[in-house]
């Protein structure tokens, strides 16, 4: 399913929050336009307060735009005649700290909740729940009757995601899903998301983790103060953002491999040598660049 966003704006009304009880308007999003194709893995990045969460809430139909349109396969989801059931079944949302959404007495009931009014038979629901929990790496027979609240933090998060998966949405939106996970936990989780994407699910993921965005996403949307300042293929966006930092004389880099590559390129001992590859974004890029550089086979070519 294709998502088309046209000139989208959203303004929060803070009623009576001003000094003289007047209403303050906060422009959270202004004139955002982009298209997300079926099967894409899109990352959304930007500083705290730039409008990332507002954008995904609009896409999921949880907020109504102040201006502009969001279309799912050409249908405006905020049109009066639009069937919202289509949207609800098409898009699953995993919010920040999804483990806080668990509520049922057993893991299987929690995961099955979203299927309650799906019209599926009891057997079909059981099958679906089993599939969702196994996809999230659980032993179904072991976990089904446990209380979700007695599980560890990481397990709770996976149960909550299984609940979204069970509905088999074509599009899944993750809002900062890996904050608080340790690096191996992050990696396992992202591999799983990548697998869902390989099987055709469109993924939209907000993250502050640049290395994760660089490695896993196909396209990136970069927001700043409610505006979409950059959109494109992930590698190109990272290279361009990094370039921008260098041009402005900021010594930082976007990803850690980019940082190392920039340090090597600027190192005094290397000034007289061939220059270091300038297209490093991910860890794998860095290793292949170093291999070329240190084995003396030249630094050209892209990963």
């Amino acid at each position: 399913m294709r998502i088309t966003i046209e000139n989208l704006s959203y303004t929060y009304d803070r009623r009576g929050r001003g000094r003289f009880d007047e209403t303050i308007e906060v422009n959270a999003l202004q004139g955002v336009s982009c298209t997300i194709e079926s099967g894409d893995f899109v990352g959304i990045m930007g500083q705290t307060g730039c409008g990332k969460t507002t954008l995904i809430q609009l896409i999921a139909g949880l907020l109504t735009p102040t201006a502009g349109r969001i279309c799912l396969d050409g249908q405006d989801i905020n049109d009066r005649s639009y069937d919202r059931n289509v949207l609800r079944q098409a898009i699953g949302v995993v919010f920040q700290y999804p483990e806080q959404q668990l509520f049922a007495a057993t893991v299987e009931n929690d995961v099955a909740f979203g299927l309650k009014y799906s019209g599926l038979s009891a057997n079909a629901i059981d099958e679906r729940v089993k599939w969702a929990l196994e996809t999230m790496g659980f032993d179904f027979s072991k976990v089904r009757k446990q209380s979700p609240l007695a599980l560890s933090g990481g397990e709770k998060r996976r149960v909550a995601i299984a609940g979204v998966l069970a509905v088999q949405p074509k599009i899944i939106i993750f809002d900062e899903p890996i904050a608080g996970l340790d690096p191996y936990g992050r990696q396992d989780f992202l591999e799983l998301v990548a697998k869902l994407n390989d099987n055709g699910t469109t993924i939209i993921m907000i993250s502050h983790n640049m290395n994760a965005l660089a490695k896993y996403t196909k396209h990136l949307l970069v927001l700043e103060d409610g505006r979409l300042i950059m959109a494109g293929e992930t590698r190109a966006v990272f290279l361009s953002l990094n370039n921008d930092l260098q041009v402005r004389g900021i010594r930082r880099a976007i990803t850690e491999p980019q940082h190392v590559a920039a340090l090597i390129a600027k190192h005094r001992k290397c000034q007289c040598q061939d220059s270091f590859r300038d297209d490093v974004v991910t860890y794998d890029d860095l290793i292949s660049a170093l291999k070329g550089y240190l084995l003396g086979v030249g630094g050209g070519g892209s990963a």
Binding site: E256, L263, H267, Q273
Partner: peptide
């Protein structure tokens, strides 16, 4: 650190 890595890479390369 990233700085140490860059230093060692360049030392070897030179």
């Amino acid at each position: 650190t990233d700085e140490e890595l860059a230093e060692k890479v360049c030392a070897l390369r030179s």
